[in-house]
Amino acid sequence: MLRPALPAPPSWFPGHMSQFTNQLPKLLSRTDVVLELRDSRLPLTSINPAFEEAITKWRYERSRGASSLLCQRVVVLGKMDLVPRWGIEPFRSSMKTLFPQDHVEFISAKDRGSAKQLHDFLISILRDKPPEFDTNVLVVGMPNVGKSTLLNSMRQCGIPGVTAKAMRTSAQPGHTKVLSTRLKISEEPRVYAYDTPGVMVPFLGNGEAGAERGLKLALIAGIKESLYSVESLAAYLLHRLYLLDPKSPPYRVLLPKETNWDISPEDFLNTLAQRLGMLLKGGGTDTTRAAEWFVRWWREKGTGNSAAMRFPELSEASGWGFDFDWSGSAPDITTRHTHLESSQAIQDKMTQKMQNFYQDLARERDTGDAVSTTQQKKIAKRKLAQKRLEKLNTNRASH
């Protein structure tokens, strides 16, 4: 299946996101633990480079202070029920290889035990901290990754008795716009957390990489869906699901049995609209409604089909989530390999993908590709104004 044409990425960086990004260094100065939430379906795309830079500086500043200062980042992969289980341990091992200082946890809103496991780990790293001191936790992440939901679950784990939900949640990105008040999530030891606004990257990037990044985030509702035509989202979703499992893609249940899975987006939406009875006056198919239904189906049910994908040695699956694909070739997996050997092959592929991703981020930062043309002009204008001010002050001081 050919990849569909990718629309140019939109710009979506409201003022409250910019304001929080500017506040982040100060907030980190009084933070002991950072819980950074990402989406299991997009474990790389849901990384915010601004957080990476801020956390690197936070660790450096903490290392220069008292040795007793706690400085721990926990990378939390939410919605684990929406990805195949066989990829979780290889991903965790890849993260441990590349980022040994970070701890990785997978959680699901449907599995209260996963929130309890995260809560217990948080408590375990506080054992050596003097009990008279409170612990501050900052929860950060892209929009709509489940930060408020996680805090509510952890509060229920850490506060005895019936505890009211403290954070409002929403399926729409950008619901939380300001830093929350200090929320207690554990009585013993005393742990307090702050919910934060979901923060997008100011610029999704140039070329196909930026275009694909925007579509991925729109599909998981991490960016305003209205910024894209729903037909574009449906076409890209069809393409990604086919890559995940060309022999038996999750959308197979929506089409007649005799249908070729390698189908064009136009034919797919026409067939789907006919099966759902979505017709226009005159007998034509309402492909826009069919596209809306398809995206909604994937978010509510179709991801479950993706999560049920069998281990690659038993199927010809060619990826995990929407960030890891083997470009049409399996990662050296055959039925002759043991399960352990196949897991190692997947881990090696994931590690390489992660390394490439971070190298691309560094390149974008160094070449300026991470900043839009408009932003580059604003930055240049500010620098010019600053130079003029410095020159003016120098001239005044010399007279």
Score class of each variant (00 low, 15 high):
Asp32Ile: 01
Glu364Trp: 03
Trp12Phe: 13
Ser226Cys: 11
Leu254Thr: 11
Gly368Tyr: 15
Ser170Phe: 08
Lys353Ile: 15
Val178Lys: 10
Thr287Trp: 01
Ser148Gly: 05
Ile346Ser: 14
Phe20Leu: 09
Lys129Ala: 07
Phe294Val: 01
Ala385Met: 08
Arg336Phe: 13
Arg363Cys: 11
Gly146Pro: 05
Ala385Gly: 10
Phe99Pro: 10
Met278Ser: 02
Trp261Lys: 09
Thr259Val: 02
Asp134His: 12
Arg252Phe: 08
Asp195Leu: 00
Thr288Gly: 04
Phe91Trp: 09
Ser153Asn: 12
Ile47Gly: 04
Arg59His: 15
Lys165Met: 03
Arg182Phe: 12
Gln156Arg: 14
Phe268Ser: 05
Lys116Asp: 07
Thr373Phe: 10
Tyr60Asp: 13
Arg182Ser: 15
Ala221Val: 00
Arg336Asp: 13
Gly174Gln: 05
Val33Gly: 04
Ser398Trp: 00
Lys301His: 04
Glu187Asp: 14
Cys71Phe: 02
Trp320Gln: 06
Ser68His: 13
Ser93Met: 05
Thr271Asn: 05
His16Trp: 00
Leu37Phe: 00
Ser372Cys: 03
Asn393Ser: 11
Lys381Arg: 09
Glu313Cys: 12
Asp323Gln: 07
Ala235Met: 09
Leu44Glu: 08
Gly277Ala: 04
Gly277Arg: 02
Thr334Gly: 09
Pro331Ile: 07
Asn48Arg: 01
Thr394His: 04
Asp120Ser: 13
Leu269Ser: 15
Asn206Lys: 13
Val74Ile: 14
Glu61Cys: 12
Ala218Leu: 00
Leu340Thr: 10
Val104Ile: 13
Phe51Ile: 08
Val253Cys: 04
Ser94Phe: 05
Gly368Ile: 12
Leu179Arg: 07
Ala345Cys: 14
Met80Phe: 04
Ala308Gly: 10
Ser186Glu: 12
Ser29Ile: 14
Ser315Pro: 00
Asp81Asn: 05
Leu272Ser: 08
Met17Thr: 01
Thr181Val: 12
Ser11His: 11
Ile159Ser: 12
Thr149Tyr: 02
Gln347Gly: 06
Gly302Arg: 11
Thr163Met: 03
Gln172Ala: 15
Thr56Cys: 07
Ser315Asp: 08
Phe121Asn: 07
Thr394Ile: 00
Ala290His: 04
Met154Trp: 01
Asp369Lys: 06
Arg289Met: 10
Arg85Ala: 10
Tyr242Arg: 10
Thr351Asn: 11
Ile55Phe: 07
Ser93Gly: 04
Leu384Tyr: 02
Thr176Ile: 10
Gly15Arg: 02
Ala380Leu: 08
Thr97Trp: 03
Val140His: 01
Pro312Met: 06
Pro25Ile: 04
Asp195Thr: 01
His175Gly: 06
Thr288Lys: 01
Asn152Gly: 11
Trp293Glu: 09
Ile220Tyr: 01
Asp262Ser: 04
Ser186Arg: 07
Val137Ala: 03
Gly328Asn: 11
Gly141Ala: 06
Gly113Asn: 03
Leu44Gly: 12
Met95Arg: 06
Asp360Pro: 02
Val74Ser: 03
Asp286Tyr: 03
Arg213Tyr: 13
Arg310Pro: 01
Arg73Phe: 09
Ser180Phe: 01
Ala317Asn: 03
Glu89Trp: 05
Pro7Phe: 11
Glu52Leu: 06
Glu258Pro: 05
Arg296Leu: 13
Arg38Ser: 14
